[in-house]
């Protein structure tokens, strides 16, 4: 059975072979890990599929402007790092048996994949056909996350690749 998870105005429908979870909604993350070291961040979804674990962060700037806190590349990289640490902690300490099982599953995969799902603002100009050039962001993520995933992806709903066990559709307002 497929699973559909929602994030902002996007619906992610995962293949029945995959086991996705909304990590930033986990009780362990919300109640325990969030406060570690004065505050940690989290990616939106974790998806265990075959022998890989996908860490998926969703950024949808079609409706709402970005209010910059840190550089986008640094923000994503920090979330990936914190999520990996959170998974290790959840594997040992999560009270919820399902969260513990999922953390355990995720950590047993042999490959970690990082995906930034980025929907860009929809008012392009000649000089900025897209606000961010995905190539630039991909290079930045490669630079920051090489030891975790040497080939991180930056996609939108129309550029998902065949190896990703999910589809994405927009949700009407």
């Amino acid at each position: 059975m497929t699973t559909t998870l929602k994030e902002q105005r996007l619906a992610f429908t995962f293949a029945d072979t995959a086991e996705p979870t909304q990590y930033d909604e986990w009780t362990f993350y919300r109640r325990q890990f969030n406060a570690v070291c004065g505050g940690t961040k989290a990616v939106d979804f974790i998806c265990v599929d075959d022998d890989q674990v996908w860490l998926i962060e969703v950024k949808d700037y079609r409706q709402h402007r970005r209010t910059k806190v840190v550089d986008l590349g640094d923000e994503i990289a920090g979330k990936v790092r914190d999520t990996l640490a959170g998974l290790v902690a959840a594997h040992c300490n999560a009270n919820d048996a399902e969260e513990k099982r999922l953390a355990n599953q995720a950590l047993r995969r042999s490959r970690c994949r990082v995906v930034l799902h980025l929907e860009q603002p929809q008012n392009p100009s000649r000089l900025f056909p897209t606000s961010v050039n995905p190539d630039n962001l991909r290079l930045k993520l490669r630079q920051l996350l090489k030891a975790i995933d040497a080939h991180p992806k930056v996609v939108d709903q129309y550029s998902l690749t065949d190896d990703m066990p999910w589809t994405v559709t927009g949700i009407a307002q």
Binding site: R66, D71, L72, Q120, F128, S131, N136
Partner: peptide, 11 residues
């Protein structure tokens, strides 16, 4: 990338 970020804040 910093320029892209500035554009997104205005977009």
């Amino acid at each position: 990338l910093a320029q892209s970020d500035r554009h997104m804040e205005l977009a």
